[in-house]
Computed example of a mutant assay.
Amino acid sequence: MLALGLGVSACGSGDEDEGPRFVGAEKVCDSVFSGDVAAALETAIGDTTFLANGDGALDRTATAVKDFYADGQDVNRGQKFCSVNGKKRGSGGMDISFGLYKQEDALSEGHSASQRPYDLGKRALAGTKNSSLYFECVSPRLDGSDKEAARVLGGLRYSDRELEGTRAEQEANLTVLHAASLALAKKLECENNGGLPTKVVLQPK
Rank of each mutant, 00 (worst) to 15 (best):
K186N: 10
V201L: 09
R151Y: 07
F50E: 02
G144E: 03
A172N: 04
A44L: 12
V32I: 12
S145V: 04
G56D: 01
K87H: 10
S13H: 10
R157N: 13
G99Q: 02
T48P: 08
F81M: 02
V176E: 05
S139Q: 06
S91F: 08
A38K: 02
K87M: 10
V138A: 09
S132A: 12
A106S: 12
F81W: 07
E171N: 04
V200R: 00
S131E: 01
K80E: 14
L184I: 03
V23N: 04
P197M: 01
T166V: 06
D74P: 06
V200I: 08
T48M: 10
A57T: 04
Q203F: 04
A180P: 04
L184V: 03
V8T: 12
Y69K: 02
E16T: 02
N192W: 11
A172H: 05
V200F: 03
L196E: 05
N192S: 15
V152G: 07
V65D: 03
E169S: 09
Q203P: 00
V23L: 04
K186G: 12
S145D: 05
I96K: 03
D47S: 12
G78H: 05
G165M: 00
V65S: 04
F50T: 01
N53T: 10
S131A: 01
Q115P: 04
T49H: 11
S159R: 14
E16Y: 07
L107F: 13
G12V: 00
A183S: 10
V84I: 12
A25F: 09
C190F: 07
T175D: 05
L182F: 15
T43V: 14
L184P: 03
R151D: 04
V200Y: 05
S13M: 15
T128C: 10
R60I: 00
G46P: 08
G24C: 10
